[in-house]
């Protein structure tokens, strides 16, 4: 083993090359004056890699690539933080050229702008498509004494402020409050940082009821470790057809989360057209549907106009229920 000085510069060169590659990868090239798309499209996901919405985005990007309708690849870029507002800012405040778009949950568009100052105009955003909808449900541990919504209401009436409910992000706090309003009950709210934390707390018997998305509890619900009391959709959902709705149980609670593809305002009509066509045809691909179903998401495929109307509706519905 003789120390050859040659070995060091070589590894240094390797490191520098790698560094340069990273810098180049991170920078945008200058926009070319060719027909759209002249280069790959970045799809910003405002949650970390590995989250359900990220997996959705990757499945979508895969199918768009396989269908060759866009002519270029779609690359998923994660910009996590601020409950989705960081990535949403990046997507909506990008140059409206169609090279930066975002797959975002509705929260940063419908809820966060009502409670926080955000540097983007959610109402002006171009909505390209609604990819999936995600029903919200109330779950209890498998061995819970609550068999239906009636049991929960009775228990909450007998002991106000004692039945613990795990909610958390606004998309869960609001349906929890609406439930109290509709049933005239008061629950004890404990905030959890998303479905995984709520699931863990339910499995450990640390809370009585949890508000979560169907996507967050699929595996647990299937195995019977968790049981869904009711799902907040108008009709039963095919993915979990044995779960009754709130409406069936005489509580008029409907609440869903939406994942939509957005772009900055003033997106050229031609670009919008091209992107919507490519995205919508990918959403309808059975390969995408398969992944979405495994995740517990309902494939939507509603066009931009319909999606925008739904977002506006949700914004209004939430206004009176938001914490001030």
């Amino acid at each position: 083993m003789k120390a050859r000085p040659v070995g060091k510069p070589r590894s240094a060169v390797l490191l520098v090359t790698l560094a340069c590659a990273l810098v180049t990868a991170a920078c945008d090239g200058s926009p070319a004056q060719q027909a759209y798309p002249a280069r790959d499209v970045q799809l910003i996901v405002p949650y970390p890699a590995g989250s359900a919405i990220d997996t959705t985005a990757r499945a979508l990007a895969d199918v768009i690539g396989a269908q060759h309708k866009l002519g270029r690849r779609v690359q998923v870029v994660n910009r996590a933080g601020g409950a989705g507002s960081v990535g949403t800012t990046a997507a909506l405040n990008a140059k409206p050229a169609g090279y930066t778009i975002g797959l975002v949950p509705d929260g940063p568009l419908t809820l966060i702008p009502q409670t926080e100052k955000v540097p983007y105009d959610a109402k002006a955003a171009t909505v390209l498509s609604e990819v999936t909808t995600s029903p919200v449900l109330f779950a209890v541990p498998g061995d819970s004494p609550f068999k239906n919504v009636g049991d929960l209401v009775a228990a909450a009436k007998a002991r106000p402020d004692a039945v613990t409910i795990g909610d958390g992000p606004l998309n869960y706090t609001i349906p929890a409050r609406k439930f109290e309003q509709l049933t005239g009950t008061r629950l004890k709210h404990v905030k959890f940082d998303g479905d995984q934390a709520t699931t863990t707390a339910l499995l450990g018997g640390n809370i009585d009821v949890g508000v979560m998305q169907l996507a967050g509890g699929m595996a647990q619900l299937k195995s019977g470790k968790l049981r869904a009391l009711a799902i907040a959709t108008a009709e039963r959902v095919g993915l979990a057809s044995d779960v009754p709705t709130f409406v069936e149980q005489n509580v008029q609670l409907q609440w869903q989360a939406y994942n939509v593809v957005v772009a900055p305002e003033d997106l050229p009509a031609k670009v919008e057209q091209k992107l919507s066509t490519a995205i919508n045809s990918a959403i309808k691909d059975p390969k995408f549907a398969q992944t979405a179903q495994k995740l517990g998401l309902v494939v939507s495929g509603a066009d931009g106009k319909a999606a925008k109307a739904r977002l506006a509706e949700k914004t209004t519905a939430a206004a009176s229920l938001l914490p001030r």
Partner: peptide, 9 residues
């Protein structure tokens, strides 16, 4: 998940 395997209980 992307390979269609869902770990759970």
């Amino acid at each position: 998940l992307l390979n269609g395997i869902v770990p759970g209980p």
